[in-house]
Design a protein around this nucleic acid. Structure first.
Lengths: 342, 342
DNA sequence: GCGGATGATACAATCGATTGCTGTCGGCTG
DNA sequence: CAGCCGACAGCAATCGATTGTATCATCCGC
């Protein structure tokens, strides 16, 4: 590639020593250098188009200004906004984002990817991978790696996390369905091994109870994965068992898609006969017929907050001041799939 | 973070000099070191858990084993598979992926992001951003930066590119519609400033002509952006002008979504009255009613091939052997939105 | 038994920055 | 006028690897 200007060349051009040039260029140490000299160095640097070599700097300072991010399944559209939000926030603070895509089902792959990121001397990590109980999370905390969980959290996690408020989100849904006159409400839950699946399930139980809606165990079915097929399967089973159900709260939009199919296979109409709600408000799904009522989570903000939190952890000189986890408030996008009880 | 083992420590543990340890650890130079010594060093390295410091290595060798990727709009689900494919291929060759998300509409932002990636001493770049005529592409080539274009290409690009074969893809669509008996076929084209928009438009003209389908200029409408609203707008205008049209080839799935709406606003049925086809075969859109007929492009492979191409450019000792651009063959996913002419 | 080839390892320069320490110079104080 | 201080800039070590060259022992043939 292009030949690059080094600090030495800038220093020579400005007629000073490397070390002086270095101090003049560095905000922190600029004040120990004579103002005129600073100006001279800055001008020379600009004229020559100097950019510091991050490798040399990193080698010396032991900071790479790089943050690693681990995504379980980058093809999931969910992660686009999270990455974008994080990248923007990091970029404005001079950090770059190293992306690694790990297969969540393959524990070893996750560990390997994390190792790669650490070996590369990332200053910190953003993890979108963690299952509810994940040994690697604890290990990271032990190894004293700066890391933040995003979207998902681990049980009693030693790491700070930025997640959506699932309790709040499910509350919006249940409240909405109750308002629409539904009393027989079912739930297609996500995998209970994941924090989102578990949290939304708990929230469903809690809200129905506090709103006085009776929910028998038969009204709940767990989907094995967040997949359309799993949703179809689970919903079929649910409707078979409980034909009286008029509303189904799905833990995720993909499950809701499966529910659409199951409802139709039973010869029922989505929205009119059976109300269906999703979670995530996946783009494009408002184009369905009927459009899906879903909980919108501020994913972009989530990424941004996670990055911000990590940055503050990295720049707090003392390791203390335990960083605070954040729980972002979702909103409900009401659409045609959740009609009133007929 | 954790204290790290250095080469010196490994060397001491093995009772040799740093340089010997270095050569023993390095595949390339291993053969100049006595086999027993190699074994001893390797064992020591493994025992201590040694991982080389990529900064020190990079500083010396001037290679970071890092590839930068520029994405115009990471929230577009299109890019997920491309990133995943590239990341996988790069990872298996020891490279990591630095992701930068640039706002395509903001030329300065693209340039800034590229600069960042270069300043970070990325070994090479994968660009998904380029418009048809993009000054930065030419500049990169001038600066002798190793770079590959993916998904989109620039006119007469000096850089190799991996793209889908739009001519072929549109051919599949047009052939299919002709087979279904359509003779009045319209086209909602993408922005002509982008290679995909332009290429698919040209392909449409070419295929209709060669298949003997008459296409008046009134049967073509350009959408300003790849957005649902733009598709709605363009399709409305098209149908207003040409109510006789029975099939619409859209340059992109989002435009097709807009077309769905426009058709319905006219009181017509998608699939039965007006056939609609998309491009990209975006996940989830097969869940629409009717499900969207679309051209499937092997995006994951695209990312993988782009990474492979870049790697070969980086490792070819001579800069010659001009790397070959690739054009990947798409397939057609026929679904309900493209019914026969009634 | 000696010059020279060979194989194995050690030495030291180098990559490009940061930073603690030293040196210099002018001015101020006692 | 000696001594000291402060402001400024240069010196050189350092980060952790890679790599060209030097060293050294061994062994070969003559």
């Amino acid at each position: 590639m292009t030949d690059r200007i080094t600090l030495k060349e800038v220093a020579d051009a400005a007629g000073v020593h490397m070390s002086t040039a270095s101090r003049a260029l560095n905000e922190q140490t600029r004040d120990v250098v004579n103002a005129e000299t600073v100006a001279r160095v800055l001008k020379a640097a600009r004229r020559l188009g100097y950019t510091p070599n991050p490798l040399a700097r990193g080698l010396r300072t032991n900071r790479t200004m790089t943050v690693g991010m681990i995504i379980p399944d980058i093809e999931n559209p969910l992660f686009g906004p999270i990455i974008a939000g994080a990248a923007a926030r990091l970029g404005s603070d001079g950090y770059s984002l190293l992306i690694a895509d790990a297969d969540l089902k393959d524990q070893a792959s996750v560990a390997r990817v994390i190792e790669t990121l650490i070996d590369r001397r990332s200053d910190g990590l953003i993890l979108a991978t963690s299952a509810r109980s994940d040994p690697t999370v604890a290990e990271l905390a032990n190894r004293n790696v700066a890391a933040v969980l995003v979207n998902r959290t681990a049980d009693a996690s030693p790491l700070p996390s930025i997640v959506g408020d699932d309790h709040e989100g499910i509350g919006l849904v249940v409240q909405h369905l109750v308002d629409m006159g539904h009393t027989e409400i079912g739930h297609i839950s996500g995998p209970q091994t994941m924090s989102t699946g578990h949290g939304r399930y708990q929230a469903f139980l809690s809200w129905t109870q506090s709103l006085g809606v009776e929910v028998a165990p038969t009204a709940i079915e767990e989907a094995a994965w967040y997949r359309v097929e799993a949703g179809l399967h689970a919903t079929s089973a649910l409707l078979e068992r409980r034909p009286d159900i008029t509303a189904i709260v799905c833990a995720n939009d993909l499950l809701a898609m499966g529910a659409y199919r199951a409802v139709r296979q039973k010869g029922l109409r989505v929205g009119a006969d059976v109300a269906i709600t999703g979670y995530n408000d996946t783009p494009l799904l408002d184009l369905l017929e009927p459009p899906l009522t879903s909980v919108r989570v501020p994913y972009r903000q989530m990424g941004s907050e996670a990055a911000g939190l990590l940055i503050s952890m990295l720049s707090s000189d003392n390791g203390s001041g335990s960083p605070v986890s954040l729980r972002l408030t979702p909103t409900l996008s009401v659409r045609g799939s959740s009609g009133p009880h007929s």
